[in-house]
Write a protein that binds this DNA or RNA. Structure first.
Lengths: 153, 153
DNA sequence: AGTCAATTTTGGAATCATTCCAGACGTTTA
DNA sequence: TAAACGTCTGGAATGATTCCAAAATTGACT
């Protein structure tokens, strides 16, 4: 396993432990699933993954664990109204994404430099106490563009 | 009525007419509601507003009209998974918002310069064909900060 | 190991925004 | 007036998320 993935899992574990939350087997599997999946999985995908090891796992447990991770600032939730939310457990800090309107893939973009400085500056400017931001770009990924081009031949 | 509001209503009307969509009385009221409300109303608020004039109006009609406006690029939809979507009919182009996590108010921020240039440049860089972006800042508005400060006295 | 208390998990029901649909209604055109 | 078409209604269907009470698991202590 990638050492970065391992490090990320440890980070999540410690963050939870610091809040007095125990790492049960299901929770641990879920951390692994989150750390090793860069496709921004939905709750259902995480559920399926954890179930491979613990088939009795219920959806409620997945939602539960997500709540714990949110409270510990260890997961980024991308909300959608029409479809299921998607989650980024690899980089819990706000960062921009490329979202394909056709295949619903979600890709990370590089972090803009000094993200928290930016929020701090904006907080001063606006009078808000800002805690996070969402920046996402919507369009059509290279693969989907090819497919529509091919289909119109 | 503000002349900017009036101009915006005309803009929406024309955009719909250009797509061969007729402006019914309910639709027209909804355009007015959208153009004159800067608080980013939800579907329920729009429904209530249109109902003041046409009490038999159904929710489905509101959803319908929103669909028409989206297709005509005349409304900006802010998606939320936990609560109702919010709509900006005054500035249909992508622009950033300040969102209060406590009172759920949504405020417009000034548009970054040359927004479409920015998308064009990013499209080149990423290979995506980007059509819109979402940039929102989440935090606590000045009013809500005061209230929690006062409550802790 | 055995018991108790506390935490976690389950599974199903409840909630709520949104979408769907068939029938009713209105408007336009001839 | 009638036919044709688009619009609107009201209620049902859908689907993600939340809630909850009961069952299962865990950890501490004996």
């Amino acid at each position: 396993m990638d050492s970065l993935v391992r490090a990320r899992i440890d980070e999540m574990r410690n963050a939870l432990l610091n809040q007095g939350i125990s790492i049960t087997r299901r929770r641990d599997k879920m951390l692994q699933a989150l750390a090793s999946n860069d496709r921004h999985p939905s709750v259902n995908e995480l559920h399926a993954e954890v179930r491979r090891w613990y088939p009795s796992t219920s959806l409620a447990t997945i939602y539960n664990t997500i709540e714990l991770l949110k409270d510990a600032d260890q997961i980024l939730e991308l909300e959608f109204s029409g479809s299921a939310n998607r989650y980024d457990g690899r980089r819990p800090q706000s960062h921009p994404h490329l979202i394909c309107l056709s295949c619903e893939s979600i890709e990370d973009m590089d972090v803009e430099s000094s993200h928290s400085d930016h929020l701090d500056r904006l907080s001063e400017d606006t009078g808000y106490r800002l805690v996070r931001q969402r920046t996402d770009y919507y369009g059509f990924c290279p693969d989907c563009q090819e497919q529509t081009a091919a289909a119109s031949d």
